[in-house]
Amino acid sequence: MSGHFLGRKLGQAAVTIVAIVLLNFVLFRLMPGSPDRILLRNPNATPEAIAAIRERWGLDKPLFPDQLVDYIAATARFDLGDSFKFRGQTVGDVILDRVGPTVLLVGLGELISVIVGLAIGAYAGWKRGGVVDRVGSSVSLVLYSMPYFVIGMPLIVILAAGLGWFPTSGMQDVGAETGFVGGLVDLARHLALPLLTVSLGLIGQYSILMRSAIIETRSEDYITTARAKGLPDGRVLRRHAFPNALLPMVTLIAINFGYVIAGAITAEIVFSWPGLGTLTITALSARDYPVLQGIFLLVAISVVIANLLADLVYGVLDPRVRV
């Protein structure tokens, strides 16, 4: 990979992140009446009290350049301010508490759906028109058309509320801590349904994408050659077609990352999973703008980094990309 390519990609990512930071600032500062609106939660607030709090939040300074400069400097220090809703907690603390559960859910969900989705998609594309293709593709298409919460709600009604196999919500039974193994089992029971929801939603997408990638690869010359040479079908798929079809998938999975998080948000809400999704909703209904800002920043930057990584991985795997 040439330094030029690397530099250009890094530069683009940096510009995007700066733009996100600016967008963040503009979005949340230019709103009418806020954020000092939060003070008015107290109808008894005296003008003196209001002035004091405006000063504390830096709202008494002009928007530009003072507030902007302060904002950028603070963001660079990862200081995102204090939460409006969770008084006495910094945005960093509030968000950090919730990153773990979301990463767990999204990470495992991605892992499962990448493995299962790609396998189904590859097989379906390879044996086009076969039983796996017909069932797999139809189910994938239906899953792809379902919002995550539509997948999740029946799961709760049937598996949790109805049959009682799984807990309906949360991440752990507080107090039911019976050592590390017990805790892990407890976590797994709570994780099962949200994870199933996220995975099902993603499997649909990935298998559809993988199927068409395999179909495209299948028609290429070297595959035809390999098959003509009399190599076993399964071997051609595993050794030749699959790795090559995987190439575009890397980018697609990275681009998809933003949607995965979006899906995870709704899945989290349905299952009260204490991650960034439920935090977003809490912050949204309390108009906790600092926290919303922080979440947006975090998610946007992770998506940018995911894209950057995909570009780099793609660059490593595919020599044609080296410009």
Partner: peptide, 23 residues
């Protein structure tokens, strides 16, 4: 357009909606 393609659109929509309603 690259910028908007990269942005997690749903999260942005979540945040934009109340802001726009307020405005």
């Amino acid at each position: 357009s690259d910028f908007f393609l990269v942005l997690p659109t749903f999260v942005l929509a979540l945040i934009l909606a109340p802001v726009l309603i307020d405005i």
